[in-house]
């Protein structure tokens, strides 16, 4: 799948999931009818909606046309990595999809009740910051009954059906491990993981930091700069070079997963 299509399917999926409809769908070109809620959320026209509400009127939500080609002839918002509207959608998606409690859909015909294990699943970004910067996505799951930890969790559950209601003939088990302690284990895991990495980038940053600090100190000693700018500059050098990793959780939730399903991960 090329990148343009990745954006297209994300955009369509996004709007469909939040109750909007596709009114026109051509090859490389489609139009979305927004709902009032979505219009208010992403179109950035607060005055219009404020006015409509005040007048007790319904308001007309807008339509948006997207395209995955640069050709301007049909108009529409060209979808590429930098499209501002796309970034609005990212932020809206992240904000709306931050937490969940979901149950695996199980079609049980034997009539016997099936136990569903609780998992804490967390998706996060590790922001590597120093002289240079990058991110690493990470997805961890911990079984809250026996503490098994799994990595690459999102990939594993991507194609499983989940619902917000528990399926018939299944029952969710109560967690033995609390969310907080499971989360702490994840943090510890990240520490171990990070220290196992080749951290050349951090060493390089530290090296640079020391070099700049020494240089600055020598300027101060030879009275080329005064104390005030020394202190300020010292802080700014830290800002620029000091290496650290910031963990930012994107989303996470409590997932109830059948043992048949999780058994496949553990034994494969």
């Amino acid at each position: 799948m090329n990148t343009a299509n990745r954006y297209t399917s994300f955009v369509k999926q996004f709007f469909l999931s939040y109750g909007c409809s596709i009114v026109n769908d051509h090859h490389s070109h489609f139009t979305i009818q927004l709902t009032c809620e979505m219009d208010e959320e992403i179109m950035n026209r607060p005055f219009y909606w404020h006015y409509m509400k005040k007048m007790n009127r319904e308001g007309a939500p807008m339509q948006l046309t997207f395209t995955d080609t640069e050709q301007k002839k049909n108009g529409g918002i060209y979808l590429h990595a930098g499209t501002p509207k796309l970034h609005t959608l990212y932020n809206t998606a992240i904000q709306k999809g931050r937490t969940a409690r979901l149950y695996e859909v199980v079609r049980e015909i034997s009539g016997r009740n099936k136990a569903m294990s609780p998992w804490l699943i967390v998706n996060a970004l590790l922001h590597y910051r120093g002289k240079k910067a990058k991110d690493e996505p990470i997805s961890i799951g911990i079984n809250l009954i026996h503490g098994t930890m799994m990595l690459g969790m999102m990939d594993k559950i991507q194609n499983i059906d989940f619902e917000t209601k528990v399926s018939d003939y299944t029952f969710p088990m109560s967690p033995v491990i609390s969310l907080t302690s499971a989360y702490k284990r994840m943090e510890r895991h990240i520490e171990t993981y990070v220290s196992s990495l080749d951290n050349e980038w951090a060493i390089d940053s530290l090296h640079h930091l020391e070099k700049e600090k020494k240089l600055l100190e020598s300027f101060y000693e030879s009275e080329d700069i005064d104390l005030e700018s020394f202190t300020k500059e010292r802080e700014q050098i830290d800002n620029r070079y000091k290496p650290y990793i910031e963990m930012e959780v994107i989303n996470g939730g409590l997932f109830y997963i059948s043992q048949d399903t999780s058994a496949q991960w553990i034994y494969h």
Binding site: R6, Y7, F10, Q13, F14, S17, Y18, A81, L86, H87, L89, Y90, N91, A93, I94, Q95, K96, G97, R98, T99, A100, R101, L102, N123, L125, A133, K134, D135, E136, P137, S139, M154, Q158, D161, F162, E163, T164, L179, T180, I250, N251, G252, G253, L254
Partner: peptide
Amino acid sequence: TLQENLDHPDKLATWDGFKLAHQAAQFKTV
């Protein structure tokens, strides 16, 4: 936040919403 939201189901996402947020973050990754 998660603990609080678990007591308020209306603040919780659907599976689609959860996946979308995850995908959005992938797109934003450096």
